[in-house]
Nucleic acid binder design. Structure first.
Lengths: 123, 123
DNA sequence: TGCGAAACTGGCCGGGTGGCCAGGACCGGC
DNA sequence: GCCGGTCCTGGCCACCCGGCCAGTTTCGCA
């Protein structure tokens, strides 16, 4: 019964590092049932690699700021973030303040938008 | 020199469709120089597949809501939005309320994040 | 050993946010 | 005509947010 169910899986690549892209392309190039997408072709899945050293450039967030930022991006309030991280609301505000500063944002919504734009976080 | 540089490429999977995830996992499972990441393990690249049919669908925002949403994504406050659109702050709140409702968000930051995720707006 | 960075906490306060109530105007469809 | 949707406005209020002041500990580095 329809073992013709071998629709090739078409993958597209979005990789910053050319060397890595090359290696992946050659590794994946000759696997049955799998194909790399032609430029512009619609793929069912995308392989993306962000080199953490390449992306953020010089934004340099601390570990805690990353935690707070991630929760902000989920719409969490300061109170929720505090509870989630087991710290006080004051401390959360402290980190949020630093985040607004570093991301050059006017508010938390702006901060999340900027961070997403720069690839610091993924929505 | 040092073509011993054959560090395994660690891939993580973020795929909505379980069947597709399964097929990919088995296809990629036995390729030399390539490995799937253990849960929580840091990967150099991610394979992600989002079914576009699941995403946008029928969110159906009104023209005014789109205006407000766009300005929200830029970090504008209700007051700023009101000034920009030439309407009162109350009206802005009214639209923001509808937006939170339609986007199933708990606040403006969450609303912008959801909208971006679904492709309603572009950051 | 001192010094800065990171992380944490507190109080205070003006202004922003979101939810509730109420209303009115316009316009297209049944 | 009447109804529903969109858009607009007002008041009220509890809560949240961001910025200011202050302090603590821990850690690594010079």
């Amino acid at each position: 019964m329809s073992e013709d169910k071998a629709p090739e899986i078409v993958l597209s690549l979005e990789i910053d590092d050319p060397a890595l892209a090359d290696r992946l392309a050659s590794l994946l190039g000759n696997i049955a049932g799998l194909r790399l997408a032609a430029p512009g072709e619609q793929a069912v899945a995308t392989i993306l690699a962000r080199d953490p050293r390449i992306m953020p450039e010089d934004i340099a967030l601390t570990l805690r700021e990353m935690d707070v930022l991630a929760l902000m991006a989920e719409g969490a309030s300061n109170k929720m973030i505090a509870r989630r991280l087991g710290i006080s609301v004051h401390t959360v505000k402290f980190h949020v303040g630093s985040l607004l500063d570093k991301l050059d944002a006017t508010g938390r919504t702006d901060a999340v938008a900027h961070a997403a734009r720069r690839g610091v976080i993924e929505l």
